[in-house]
Design a protein around this nucleic acid. Sequence first.
RNA 1: GCCCAGAUAGCUCAGUCGGCAGAGCAUUUCACUCGUAAUGAAAAGGUCGAGGGUUCGAUUCCCUCUCUGGGCUCCA
Length: 657
Amino acid sequence: MADITISLPDGSQRTLPAGATATTLAQSIGSRLAKAAVAAVVNGAEADLGAPLPDGATVAIITADSDEGRHVLRHSTAHVMAQAVTRLFPGAKYSIGPAINDGFYYDFELPGGRTFTEADLATIEAEMAAIVKADQPFERAELPAAEALEVFAAQPYKREIIERVSTGAADSEDAGEIGSGETISVYRNTPEFVDLCRGPHVPSTGRLGHFKLMKVAGAYWRGNEKGPMLQRIYGTAWDTKAALEEHLHRMEEAEKRDHRKLAVELDLLSFPSQLGGGLAVWHPKGALVRKLMEDYSRQRHIDGDYQFVFTPHLANANLFQTSGHLDFYKDGMYPPMEMDNGTYYPKPMNCPMHCLIFDSRQRSYRELPLRLFELGTVYRYERAGTLHGLMRIRGFTQDDSHIYCREDQLQDEIASLLDFVMSVLRAFGFDEFTANLSTKDPQKYVGDDDIWDRATAALQAALEKYGLAYKVKEGDAAFYGPKIDIDVKDAIGRTWQLSTIQCDFNLPERFALEYVGADGNRHRPIMLHRALFGSVERFFGVLLEHYAGAFPTWLAPVQARVLPVAEGHQAYAEQVLARLAKEGLRADLVEATDQLGRRIRTAKMEKIPYVLVVGDDDVAAGTLGVNPRGGEVERGVAVDAFVQRVHDEVAAQLAMA
RNA sequence: GCCCAGAUAGCUCAGUCGGCAGAGCAUUUCACUCGUAAUGAAAAGGUCGAGGGUUCGAUUCCCUCUCUGGGCUCCA
């Protein structure tokens, strides 16, 4: 038999006997590689390790510790879960089971409408472990559609996919299940379980094992709200036990940082059920932090040449008719109020009102760019199931700005906006940013192609000038104009979409906004929508999770707590407190009715940046014992030195901007 | 809106196979006066989310609603 020649990614070549597989190849390179291998890339396409290699192929081995490798592990684990479910629940229908970030899911329909319980997860996990132990091979087969339909005679969801594929109606949702082409590929592990799948898979189930089933949820078949509701089981799967444990640990950490939990623990705000869903009340400490955020934002806007405006919470329906919100967005608006002189709605947005301000008198080109700013509270009817703490809420405040400018000012304005946005976000402790540029949806847009092109180019040029990494999302723009969204990465690596800069060619048209140009003629301005926090409430929630409740000194509701060691030190403690207050520090005092250790513990749990202990030595010397958050205790610190230190620290935190 | 799971003291939770409701922490009071993450004792604290049904009797079983959590869908 003739040998075959295989090229490796580094350009080198290997000669193997005909019929050799990627497994053979990996073994010939090294036993470590063979052990880590889960699949291969053959001539650019992912393939099973066990598939015979064609002569002259370029082959790369996919190892379990790569993103692609984990993807294969997760997908294979999803198959094992489906097999376990069909064993435990005879008659279960399985639909799709892709790999996702950190894991996988699989959707099922159980006979008689039975649903999975939490307890079922443990049973399924145990069955999966048995399948892994049995080390069943994953065997690939390719079948004509007619035969595949027979194989899946009892599986209507699989049949539906096969039918869609064979009639050419497959879409991206089917892609994980099935490749394109005439034949349908299936994977079989033991005669009892077969699944429709494009692959690749690990050679056998014994290669798997570091997984955990996480939760049960409902999910629509093909994401269609009108379609049947299936039962989805989510799991996580990793290449090593350590990686799995690390992931579970990360999940726990994220849970500890949950802003809803921290908001209660730190007495910042609450969502009383009497108030109604998705509505929050701010307690004094939360309100104080919010005020600090807002004050900082206001000052930056003053420095940035913004003009402050205020607009009411209600508006006549005519306004939203003009703006188009009643046509496009009525479902997201609260129901109308009928009053003697018309119909009124709570505002879902501030922009129409800002347009009225622009339009209140004749505008000159000399006034542009005109930057209007408002911390504007809006009300949106979010569907009950979508509410989520501060992240998705029904009444919230936007740090909303609308900038009216000439087209020739667009690029500079966007570039300076980008600078402004990032500078403000840095002051709040974010330093990793990425952006998305959303471009025209050719099916749905208003305005000339020409202006879309120029505005998109302006956004892109601004991103490049700023040197910000960005992705282009083709066709993702709103109908009224292209936009930039800015994501930040938080302390535990999660990304949050916060700021947005959007061009709008629609509202100036609808409100017939005009300015008088240098040429004496009337021109239509371009409008930019811009929010930095997005929603003050949501931004507060993100900050709370980012800092795990330990706000930096400049934002902490209480910056320092004075603790007299014993009652005899109360008078001196009060003097210290008065001094701190005079210096503009936010400090409080807890009397010595409890033991010192206990009071320190309470202060630490409240995540106060500085605990100041004063006793005999301090009374005598006019000093403090300083116990900083996350630091070592320092004795005998002069009060002046402490005040200076806090001032310097706050200044340094804000200088990050 | 849809699927699933919940709602018991301020918080975290246990419990009642249908018969007077429990713990820890927090709160209040008393004692202790203490130098860096929990001193001790006592008291007080509940329409068992709301409404309806079944029952001699419902916090417990059933129904509806409200709110919450996990998802799905949605987010101009």
